[in-house]
Amino acid sequence: MSSAPHWIEPHPHGIFVRPANAWIDPSRPVSRALVTHGHADHARGGHDAVWATPETLAIINLRYGRYPGENAVEYGQTLDLNGVKVSFHPAGHVLGSAQIRMQYRGETVVVTGDFKRRPDPSCAAFELVPCDIFITEATFGLPVFRHPPTSDEIAKLLAMRAAHPEGCVLVGAYALGKAQRVITELRALGYHDPIYLHGALEKMCALYADHGIAMGPLLPVAGTDKADLKGSIVLAPPSALADRWSRRLPDPVTSMASGWMRVRARAQQRGVELPLIISDHADWDELTTTIREVAPKEVWVTHGREEALLRWCELHQIKARALALVGREDEDEG
């Protein structure tokens, strides 16, 4: 980096775009915020004006309420914020998730937010955006993280369900993104039975359906007879897996859909019997491939296992630095 301050300033609580006087995913209330997606560690309440995709705004409205000034930005649409050209591009992470591209004085910077490369029937596919400075996440930035093909993991889930007709399979899945991903991946493999939902997942699934994502038949666990849940697949937020709530289920096999399931101890800590390695984040190969394809002059790493990704950049003679943003991964979403 040159000695003069860059027009993009990393701070512990967010990335400040000085000429635009706007923050990206700030973790404390600000007057102007650009928000990449609706997860709690990126979208906080209390901002005055917010720019985000219409889907992200809908998610924020559902989860946290409204901001005084909401500006919906379609993918590909370009804004001008005090001379900074800003556009949003699909990140493939969850519904509405975006990378934010900014151009100022001949330099292009992309902030990925969270992203993944592999196909996901519940959201728009990642778009490769060339840039000079690539500001990336590194949630799974260790070479031990290689997510297997999603269809293999869904096949394991279906096999467990078939082998367990007198019980059910209880899948822990984060309420925004993972739950809808698991549902749509199941449908893609031809599973059309009703899928039962914990109450905490219902509204977000309905929001996805309203945005044209086909969810198939979904039923609430609440009010369903225990006997009717035999042989079914039940989705719940991870916090409910070990909760008293699960006592209403017939002999559940505990499963969890998360990239962390790649590490045995992570699954064992949660008492998971059927780990499903399904992640909404780029794995190691996706991260490194993306950096190669974007071929930026510099890589900045926002959060995750940044040390390893920096080491990889060093080995490949790519200029890189860690930003050490705080408060990320609070939801432990993976």
Binding site: L142, P143, V144, V263, A265, R305, E307, A308, R311, W312
Partner: peptide, 9 residues
């Protein structure tokens, strides 16, 4: 990279 991975796993 191995050391960092071993630390995590």
């Amino acid at each position: 990279l191995f050391r960092l991975s071993r630390d995590f796993v």
